[in-house]
Write a protein that binds this DNA or RNA. Structure first.
Lengths: 356, 356
DNA sequence: GTTTAGCACTCGATACAATAGAGTGCTAAC
DNA sequence: GTTAGCACTCTATTGTATCGAGTGCTAAAC
C-alpha cells in the first residue's frame, strides 16, 4: 500500500461518476466510459488506476476480470453519506405530488393508502408504510347506536381519527332509551383512558354501573372490548410492487417471489421500516446487506418517520434495487413526508395539544 | 375427412390424458408418454394418429413439428365442460378451509379480505373479489356523535353490515343535546331510504327540519352526504399475486407486469369477474382468449357469484395459467362459496327478510 | 512524480456447426 | 383397425472459434 491508496478528491469524483452511471444503466462501468462521459480531464488509464485502488479499498467490485466496475455496498454508503448531490425536483413534479396528495383524505386508513400509492408512483419503486402499534393511544369516545331491530353498532374513536366499529346482535330488541343510557355510561367510563389502561376486567366492571340483566349487556361489552382492541391492530400498506418487475435485477422470478412474499407479512414491513428510531426526523437508508431481513439483502430501503399527533408515529418508505436513484428518492421522500404531515394535521386539527 | 375425424370416446380419453398431463408438467405431451402412463391399451402409433386428428379438429396444438401436443383453448373448453372428473377434496383440506374461513369475521371488509386470502392460499393462484356497486342498497341508520370539542363523527350503516364514517370539524362546539337532536332528525329522515333516493338536494333539504344556523349544520350535512356516498364505493380484493411467479408460464417479467398492472384497477377486476350474470349460481370459467381483457388472454379466470342478503351480490374468483388444475379449483371454489355465504349470513343474521 | 499511450491478456457474449433426442407422419405388415 | 418400423423434422445441447470490452502493466511523455 502506497500513498495512492488513500482517499482523495479525485477518487471520490470517479466513484461518484461510476455510481451515477451504474444507477442509470445497470451495467458494469468501464474506465473509458467514465473518461468519455464525465469531463474529469483524465485519461482512461489514470481512471483505471484509480478504479483499481477504489476496488482494493472496497468501494467498487468487479463481476469478473474483464468487466467494468460496479459499486459495492460500502461504495453506495459513501455515496449517500457524502458524495450525493441532491437534485431539486422540478416545479411540475412538486406540484403534481402536492396536488395528488391533497386530493382526498377523510380517513386515516385512506390517507395512508393514498400516500403510499403516490410515493410508489413518484419514485417508481415499491412503497411501504405502517403505523406502528403504540398503546399509549387514548380513547376519545365510545358509543352504542341502535341500527335495526336486534342489531346495535358499537363505535369507538381514538386519537388521530382512528375509528373502529362492531355490529352486535342481541336476541331482544332493547329500548332506545336503554341503549342511550348504556352508551352514555360507557362513554363516560372509557373515554379519556389510554389503550393500556383498558382490559376485559375494566370493561366488564362497567356492568356494575348499569342495572340491567347480563344477558343483554354482555354482548355489548364484549363488542366494545373487541372494538377497542382492534384500534391498534394495524395494517401495513404496500404499493407499486409491479414497478420492480421493470428493473433487470428483478427479472429472476425466485428472487422477486421471495421479496414479494416478504411484503405479505405486516411484521416484516415494520422490521424494514423501524430500523433506526433515533434520528427519526430524517431519512434513513439501508443498503443491501445492511438490511436485517435476508430477502431484502439485495435491495435498498429508504424510510422516514412522521409524527402524527402526540401519540402516534407513522413510518413510510420505499424499496428498490440497490442502484436506486438515491438523490431523487430522498427528495421525494422529504417532500412526501412534509405533505403527509400537513395533510394529517389538516385532517385532525393539529397535534391536539389540549391533552394533559 | 373420413370417419376417423369424428369425435369418439377414445379421442376424448386421449384428450383428457393429454390435458391432465400437461396441467402437471407444462411440457408438450408426446404420444409415447400417453401410451406409457395411461393404460388405454393402445400403442403410441395409434395415439399418434388420434392426436393428429384431435389437432386437426382444433383441440390440440403443436408448438413445432417435432414436439408433443398442448391443449388449445377449444381443448380446455371441452375438457372443463365434459371431460373433467371432479376430484373430491380430502377431508383435511375441507376442514382446514372451513376452520380458516370461520376464524374471525366481524366486518364485511375484513371478511372479504379473509375469504380472498384463503382462496388464493388453497388454490395456489391469484384470487380476486369484488362487491359490485348496486345502489338499491338501503340505509339502515345514520347518526352523529360528539367526539371531542370541535369534532363530531358521522356514522352511517347500510344493509349487509356496511358501516362508513366521517369526522367533521366544526368551529363551535355544539351542545350534546343539539347533536342528539340533529342525529335523531337525520336518522328518521334518511334511514330506510335506498341509496339511489339520496342526493345532495335531499340531504340539504333536511336543514329545513332543524332550526339551526347553516354555518353549523352545513358541515354536518356535507359529511353525511359524503359518508353515505362512500357506501357503494367499493374496492376490489386481490390476494396471492406472488403465487403466479412460481409457474413457468409467468416467468416472463413483461407478461407478469402487464397482468399485475391489470389487477391494480378495480374496474378490471370487475370486468374479469362479472362475465356471466345469468348462471350466477354456478362456477364460470373463462379460458385464455375467452377473456375480454387483452392482458388476461393467456390466463384462465374461474369465478362465481354469491348473493349477500337481498340487495348485494359479491363475486369471487381466481386467476391462474390456462393449464390450471381445473378440477381442484372448481371444488375449492364451490366449497369456498358455500362457506363464505354461511359466514356472511351468520354475521348479518340471514337475508334480512323484514325488508319492505 | 504523475499521467498517459500502448499492448498483451482475460473472459463473457455471440455466432456457428455438429450432435443427440424427442416426437412426428407415413407405410407396410399384422 | 392396429401397430411396428423408419425416415424426417426441429429443438436443445455441446463444442469451437471469434469478437470486443475492459483490465493491468510497462514504458514513454510530461
Amino acid at each position: 500500500m502506497n500513498s495512492s491508496d488513500w482517499m482523495n478528491e479525485r477518487k471520490l469524483n470517479i466513484l461518484r461518476a461510476v455510481i451515477n452511471d451504474y444507477i442509470m444503466t445497470a451495467e458494469p462501468i468501464g474506465s473509458r466510459t467514465i473518461a468519455r462521459k464525465h469531463e474529469l480531464g483524465l485519461s482512461s488509464a489514470t481512471i483505471r488506476n484509480e478504479m483499481a485502488d477504489l476496488e482494493e479499498m472496497g468501494y467498487l467490485a468487479q463481476p469478473h476480470t474483464s468487466a467494468g466496475r460496479i459499486p459495492s455496498v460500502k461504495g453506495y454508503r459513501l455515496y449517500v453519506d457524502h458524495l450525493i448531490r441532491l437534485t431539486e425536483l422540478t416545479l411540475e413534479e412538486v406540484i403534481s405530488i402536492r396536488n395528488a396528495i391533497s386530493e382526498q383524505a377523510f380517513e386515516l386508513n385512506r390517507l395512508m393508502r393514498h400516500v403510499t400509492s403516490i410515493l410508489s408512483e413518484a419514485t417508481g419503486y415499491i412503497s411501504i408504510a405502517t403505523i406502528p402499534k403504540m398503546n399509549q393511544n387514548k380513547i376519545k369516545a365510545v358509543q352504542v347506536l341502535p341500527v335495526e331491530p336486534g342489531k346495535l353498532l358499537v363505535v369507538s374513536v381514538a386519537e388521530g381519527g382512528i375509528v373502529r366499529n362492531r355490529l352486535v346482535r342481541i336476541s331482544v330488541t332493547p329500548d332506545p332509551n336503554f341503549v342511550q343510557k348504556v352508551s352514555r355510561v360507557l362513554n363516560s367510563k372509557i373515554s379519556g383512558l389510554n389503550m393500556n389502561e383498558i382490559n376485559l376486567e375494566v370493561i366488564r366492571g362497567i356492568k356494575e354501573d348499569i342495572q340491567v340483566p347480563d344477558s343483554m349487556l354482555m354482548p355489548i361489552l364484549d363488542a366494545v372490548y373487541d372494538c377497542i382492541g382492534s384500534i391498534d391492530s394495524n395494517e401495513a400498506y404496500v404499493d407499486g410492487t409491479v414497478n420492480l418487475l421493470g428493473y433487470p435485477e428483478f427479472h429472476d422470478p425466485v428472487r422477486v417471489r421471495e421479496l414479494f412474499r416478504l411484503l405479505d407479512e405486516e411484521n416484516n414491513i415494520q422490521q424494514l421500516l423501524n430500523r433506526d428510531e433515533t434520528n427519526s426526523t430524517n431519512v434513513t437508508i439501508s443498503i443491501g446487506t445492511e438490511n436485517r431481513l435476508e430477502q431484502a439483502r439485495d435491495s435498498t430501503v429508504v424510510s422516514t418517520s412522521c409524527p402524527m399527533g402526540d401519540s402516534m408515529m407513522s413510518s413510510i418508505g420505499i424499496i428498490g434495487p440497490t442502484r436506486m436513484d438515491y438523490s431523487r428518492v430522498i427528495s421525494i421522500m422529504k417532500l412526501d413526508r412534509r405533505l403527509f404531515k400537513n395533510e394529517f394535521e389538516k385532517l385532525y386539527n393539529g397535534n391536539n395539544s389540549e391533552e394533559t
